[in-house]
Amino acid sequence: MAWVLNLPAGLSATLAKTLPDYQAKINITGTPVAPYSAPVQLMIPASALARGMAVSVAPNASAKWDILPPKREAALSDVTVKGYAGRPVAEKQCVITLVNDAFGAIPEGTDITPWFTNMPAGLKAKSSAVADGAKSATAFIGGTPEETSAEAMRLTIPASRLQTGEALAADENPDAKFDIASKIPPAASVADVAVAGEAGKPIAETLAYI
């Protein structure tokens, strides 16, 4: 539509109708293809006016385009890192999946422990090999925790590892979590019993309960 001078790509504008008191109604529809932020620029064509002269519409700071970039997201797969403080845990894998962003290349075995902002001390995370432009990466989590934790994992991917160049916090997944309990020392006791007899002579069979 010629009236709208800076219509974002993917949108269309149609003159719905003219209204009393020298007003007109424009319908704007469609799917914008790129972010865009600017005041709306309008020009009423000569053909729409009785005097036959085009008129520029005065800008209005509150009449604007505010097309935002697609929302970026990061998600963690379900995983539970389970064990006891002071004991090695079985290595677990957690897949990190991106939407509207992509990883840069990451060598296999890269330490990504700092990505996990609430990783229990003693645990480490290493990355799978990740190709430039990949939408997912796998974290291998293992080690010997030095403290307890029953928290959902919290993860922020640093800006240097993403193609957008902006850090991204993963959405919290309650099923991606730590389950590290206190170390329970082994213990045993024996029930009361008296093993009586006389040196040099067999004793009667006696049961001791543990």
Rank of each mutant, 00 (worst) to 15 (best):
I44Q: 04
A105G: 14
A169P: 00
V57P: 08
A102E: 11
G10Y: 07
G109L: 08
I203M: 12
A63P: 09
P69W: 07
A9T: 01
K82S: 11
R161D: 12
S136H: 07
I44E: 06
R161H: 10
P114N: 04
D111L: 11
K124C: 13
T156R: 02
I67F: 03
A187L: 04
K71W: 05
A16S: 14
V193M: 07
E172K: 04
V81S: 00
V81A: 00
P120S: 13
R161G: 08
P70F: 06
P186D: 01
C94F: 05
L42Q: 03
V79G: 09
T110H: 03
A50L: 14
I112T: 01
I141C: 02
A137I: 02
R51P: 06
M153G: 05
G165H: 06
G142P: 00
T156W: 00
N100T: 01
A38G: 05
A199T: 11
N6Y: 08
P120K: 05
S136V: 02
P59L: 04
P70Q: 10
M1F: 00
L155P: 07
G200C: 11
K124W: 11
N60R: 10
E73A: 15
E198T: 06
A24T: 03
D111C: 10
K126S: 15
L19H: 03
T206S: 14
D179F: 07
V195S: 11
G200L: 08
T138H: 06
A169H: 04
G83C: 03
K82N: 14
G142K: 00
E205T: 13
P174K: 09
A105Q: 15
G197H: 05
N100L: 00
A102G: 15
D101R: 05
V79Y: 05
P69F: 08
A187Q: 12
D78M: 00
A152W: 01
D101I: 04
I106M: 09
D101F: 03
S37M: 12
M1Q: 13
V4H: 02
G197Q: 08
E146S: 15
A105S: 15
P32W: 04
G10D: 06
V195T: 04
V4A: 12
P114I: 01
P45W: 07
Y36Q: 07
P32G: 09
A196H: 09
E172Y: 04
Y209M: 14
R161F: 00
A167V: 03
P145Q: 12
P158N: 15
Q163Y: 09
A196N: 09
K183Y: 03
I112F: 05
T117W: 03
P69L: 07
P45Q: 06
L49H: 06
K82A: 08
L49E: 09
